[in-house]
């Protein structure tokens, strides 16, 4: 193996794993770009994800939030087919139907830290690549930490 982190995108392209019906039938999960949510003064976060034409993926594929809380997400379907999104949300997941060339919003609340996945739950969109990640960084509040000295992490 000669893989390095720097050339992963090129390797995915070369191997035909970053699109539809190349080497694999669909797009390998976990590929795609990385994006960051923006934060308003009140702590609410905003971001936009879109579905490019014939890619069956979310762009960015991984959305990073600085902390848990409220996220106002704009979802755009630039594809020429109909999809949807089922999004994690404290209380009840949320769903939005995205016909061809549609744009909508979702207000969701998530705890941090941790990783959540969302997807288009029609047909097998999820398996073809329409599964995105929302990654929340940060630490839990001090009151929730164990009473012990700082410990080593991986």
């Amino acid at each position: 193996m000669t893989t390095t982190a720097d050339d992963r995108s090129a390797q995915l392209a070369e191997a035909g794993l970053d699109g539809q019906n190349k080497t694999a039938l669909g797009r390998v999960l976990g590929t795609g770009s990385i994006g960051y949510a923006e934060e308003r003064p009140d702590g609410t976060m905003t971001a936009t994800v879109r579905i490019p034409e014939d890619e069956l993926c979310w762009e960015p594929g991984t959305l990073i939030l600085p902390h848990g809380g409220d996220l106002e997400l704009t979802l755009i379907n630039d594809d020429k087919n109909t999809h949807c999104a089922v999004l994690p949300n404290n209380g009840d997941p949320k769903i939005i139907w995205l016909v061809n060339h549609a744009k909508g919003t979702a207000s969701i609340n998530l705890d941090g830290p941790g990783t959540y996945y969302y997807g288009s739950t029609t047909g097998n969109d999820e398996g073809r690549g329409l599964t995105g990640a929302i990654v929340i960084g940060g630490e839990v509040p001090d009151h929730a930490k164990l009473d012990r000295p700082p410990q080593p992490r991986p």
Binding site: L75, I76, N77, A85, V86, L87, N89, G91, D92, P93, K94, I95, I96, W97, L98, V99, N100, H101, A102, K103, G104, T105, A106, S107, I108
Partner: peptide, 17 residues
């Protein structure tokens, strides 16, 4: 290209049950 179709806001899954 025309304007996007307005997909509205996502709703709780329970609403569709």
């Amino acid at each position: 290209m025309t304007d996007y179709v307005d997909a509205g806001a996502a709703v709780p899954m329970t609403q569709l049950s």
